[in-house]
Amino acid sequence: HNLTITQGKLFFHYNPKLCLSEIHKMEEVSGTKGRQERNDIALKTNGDQASCENELLKFSYIRTSFDKILLRWEPYWPPDFRDLLGFMLFYKEAPYQNVTEFDGQDACGSNSWTVVDIDPPLRSNDPKSQNHPGWLMRGLKPWTQYAIFVKTLVTFSDERRTYGAKSDIIYVQTDATNPSVPLDPISVSNSSSQIILKWKPPSDPNGNITHYLVFWERQAEDSELFELDYCLKGLKLPSRTWSPPFESEDSQKHNQSEYEDSAGECCSCPKTDSQILKELEESSFRKTFEDYLHNVVFVPRKTSSGTGAEDPRPSRKRRSLGDVGNVTVAVPTVAAFPNTSSTSVPTSPEEHRPFEKVVNKESLVISGLRHFTGYRIELQACNQDTPEERCSVAAYVSARTMPEAKADDIVGPVTHEIFENNVVHLMWQEPKEPNGLIVLYEVSYRRYGDEELHLCVSRKHFALERGCRLRGLSPGNYSVRIRATSLAGNGSWTEPTYFYVTDYLDVPSNIA
Rank of each mutant, 00 (worst) to 15 (best):
S203W: 04
G207L: 02
N208D: 02
I209C: 12
H211S: 04
Y212V: 11
Y212P: 00
E217Y: 15
E217V: 04
R218Q: 12
Q219Y: 15
A220K: 06
E221T: 05
E224W: 09
E224A: 10
L225E: 10
F226N: 12
E227S: 11
Y230W: 13
Y230P: 06
C231T: 04
C231F: 03
L232D: 14
G234M: 11
G234W: 06
L235I: 07
P238M: 07
R240Q: 04
T241C: 12
T241M: 09
W242G: 13
S243I: 08
S243P: 12
S243Y: 06
P244M: 13
P245I: 14
P245L: 13
F246Y: 13
F246T: 11
E247K: 11
D250K: 10
D250Q: 07
S251V: 10
Q252C: 13
K253P: 04
Q256G: 00
S257W: 08
Y259R: 09
Y259N: 11
Y259M: 04
E260W: 13
D261T: 07
S262Y: 10
A263L: 11
G264H: 06
C267P: 07
S268Y: 05
P270D: 15
D273C: 04
S274C: 15
I276E: 11
I276F: 08
L277N: 14
E279I: 07
E281Q: 12
S283F: 14
S284C: 01
S284L: 08
F285Y: 09
K287Y: 11
T288V: 13
F289R: 08
D291I: 08
D291H: 11
D291W: 15
Y292L: 06
F298D: 10
V299Y: 13
P300Y: 03
R301K: 10
S305M: 07
G306K: 12
A309I: 07
A309V: 13
R313F: 12
R316V: 06
K317G: 08
K317I: 09
R318L: 13
R318D: 13
R318E: 11
R319P: 09
S320A: 14
L321D: 05
N326W: 02
V327A: 11
V329D: 15
V329F: 05
P332W: 07
V334S: 10
F337R: 13
P338S: 08
N339K: 10
S341H: 12
S341L: 11
T343R: 06
V345R: 08
V345D: 09
E350K: 06
R353G: 15
E356Y: 12
K357P: 12
V359W: 06
V359L: 09
N360H: 09
N360F: 08
E362L: 06
I366A: 04
G368F: 07
H371G: 12
F372N: 07
T373I: 08
G374F: 13
I377W: 04
E378H: 14
E378S: 07
L379S: 01
Q380L: 12
Q380D: 10
D385F: 10
P387G: 10
P387M: 14
E389F: 12
R390K: 11
C391P: 02
C391F: 01
A394V: 07
A395G: 14
A395P: 02
A395N: 07
Y396H: 14
V397N: 13
V397Q: 02
T401M: 01
M402Q: 15
E404L: 04
A405T: 13
A407T: 11
D408L: 02
I410M: 04
G412S: 14
V414S: 01
H416C: 09
E417A: 13
E417Y: 03
I418L: 08
N422R: 13
V423T: 14
M427A: 12
M427L: 07
M427C: 02
Q429F: 12
K432L: 13
N435E: 01
I438C: 04
V439T: 10
L440M: 08
Y441W: 00
E442M: 04
E442C: 12
V443G: 00
S444N: 09
S444A: 04
E452Q: 09
S458G: 05
R459L: 10
K460T: 09
H461M: 12
E465Y: 12
G467F: 04
C468L: 06
L470N: 01
G472K: 14
G476K: 00
N477V: 02
Y478R: 00
S479L: 03
V480L: 06
R481W: 04
I482R: 00
R483L: 02
R483D: 00
A484G: 06
A484T: 10
T485E: 15
S486Y: 01
L487D: 08
A488D: 02
A488P: 02
G489L: 05
S492A: 13
T494I: 03
P496L: 10
F499Y: 01
Y500E: 02
V501K: 03
T502F: 04
D503F: 03
L505Y: 15
V507N: 15
V507M: 14
P508V: 11
S509P: 12
